[in-house]
């Protein structure tokens, strides 16, 4: 078991083309820090002055961290973190 981050299509180029990236950490914030350590180009895509960009929604096992504990939301082995920006187009 591991912690997986699911990368949406618009961010994949900055994530080495990966759909899923395995990370470590005990909170969502730590997991995203590890993600950016592995793929530094994701840094400015996800954060602006230390704040998550308002159009990046983060879901932990399909629950939104904004009604959990935001970046302090605890995670454990087996957790999937999905990054979900709004989809334009149509």
């Amino acid at each position: 078991m591991a912690i997986l981050v699911e990368i949406p299509p618009p961010l994949r180029e900055a994530a080495g083309g990966n759909v899923h990236i395995q990370v470590t950490g005990t909170t969502v914030g730590e997991a995203l820090t590890d993600l950016i350590r592995q793929h530094p180009a994701l840094g400015t895509k996800l954060f602006d002055n230390g704040q998550l960009r308002p159009y990046i929604n983060v879901f932990v096992n399909d629950e939104d961290i904004r009604y959990l504990e935001e970046l302090q939301t605890p995670i454990q082995d087996g957790t999937t973190i999905a990054l979900i920006p709004a989809v334009a187009g149509g």
Partner: peptide, 16 residues
């Protein structure tokens, strides 16, 4: 979705 992705950051049917 409090805010939309900035222009050029989300991809459109033409670009993506």
């Amino acid at each position: 979705f409090e805010a939309a992705p900035a222009p050029g950051e989300a991809g459109t049917c033409e670009t993506a």
